[in-house]
């Protein structure tokens, strides 16, 4: 089933909000913290939808989220 635009927006909004709360740190650290937060609290279904958003060009996504999403592909430290 195609994800509804409304719920796609939810992941985008929530991920950007998480990024905004880690932005005070240097980019590498912030991206790792965003990834760690997503890994700790987001269910696989949400992470998959985020991944699809990134894969489709990441329009509207905070660049920190895009960097964090790349880190999610690797196991947590």
């Amino acid at each position: 089933m195609t994800p509804s635009p409304e719920s796609e927006l939810a992941e985008l909004r929530m991920a950007n909000q998480i990024a905004a709360n880690f932005r005070h740190h240097p980019d590498d650290q912030a991206a790792a913290e965003v990834a760690n937060h997503l890994r700790s609290f987001w269910t696989p279904w949400m992470l998959e939808r985020l991944e699809r958003l990134v894969d489709s060009g990441g329009e509207g996504l905070d660049p920190l989220v895009v960097r964090a999403a790349a880190l999610l592909a690797t196991p947590a430290a």
Partner: peptide, 8 residues
């Protein structure tokens, strides 16, 4: 892995 929260 975590499950869904209520809003999710």
């Amino acid at each position: 892995r975590p499950g869904l929260r209520i809003p999710n």
